[in-house]
Amino acid sequence: MLKVTVELWPGGRESGSRVLATAKIGRVKNGALADYKVELHEDVQGEIGAATLHDYPRCASTIWDLVARAVAVALTGKEELPPRPQELDVPIHAVGNTSYVRLREIPEPARSLFQKRIAFSTRPLIDEDPEPMDCAYAWDWRDFLDGGR
């Protein structure tokens, strides 16, 4: 079995590193054309996908070709990459001098990751919003998008 691990190394240093995602790729049928089962997991989302890569020509390319195709099959069901994700377009709202985002308007998986990053941050209480406790400061959102959180 292969286990591919994606780690974050803050500032390029191994100390303080943490695992963001793993892929497990196991051969389930031997032969010149082998089958591989793949399971993708992320720290925040849990299981992302699972599938089988059928009739892969062993030893015909690099291990990275196998990894790329296995990941693609688990994500899309086919040996092709999904469309490139679009930039997150989350509206910024304002009440008086307070700019904020609504957490419910942030698509997953960004919402869960952002909520985890602001868990101990101050958040605004926007009385005018239909869900006043579901808001975060716009600067925290921008910092998150810029990689600062």
Rank of each mutant, 00 (worst) to 15 (best):
M1W: 08
P10G: 11
E14P: 08
G16D: 12
G16I: 12
S17C: 10
V19T: 15
L20E: 03
K24G: 04
K24S: 11
K29Q: 15
G31T: 10
G31M: 14
A32Y: 14
Y36G: 05
K37Q: 11
K37L: 12
K37H: 12
L40R: 01
E42Q: 11
D43M: 12
G49D: 02
A50N: 06
A50R: 10
A51E: 01
A51R: 02
T52I: 08
H54A: 15
H54F: 14
C59H: 14
A60W: 13
L66F: 03
V67R: 05
R69V: 02
V71T: 03
A72H: 08
A72K: 07
V73T: 05
T76I: 08
K78N: 11
E79R: 13
P82R: 00
P85K: 02
P85T: 02
V90E: 04
I92D: 02
A94M: 10
V95T: 15
G96N: 13
G96D: 13
Y100Q: 03
V101C: 01
L103P: 05
E108T: 04
P109G: 03
A110Q: 09
A110H: 06
R111V: 00
F114A: 06
R117E: 01
R117D: 06
F120T: 12
R123W: 11
I126G: 03
D127A: 13
D127I: 10
P132D: 10
M133C: 14
M133V: 12
D134S: 08
W139L: 09
D143V: 07
F144M: 03
F144R: 05
D146H: 08
G147C: 05
G147E: 01
G148F: 11
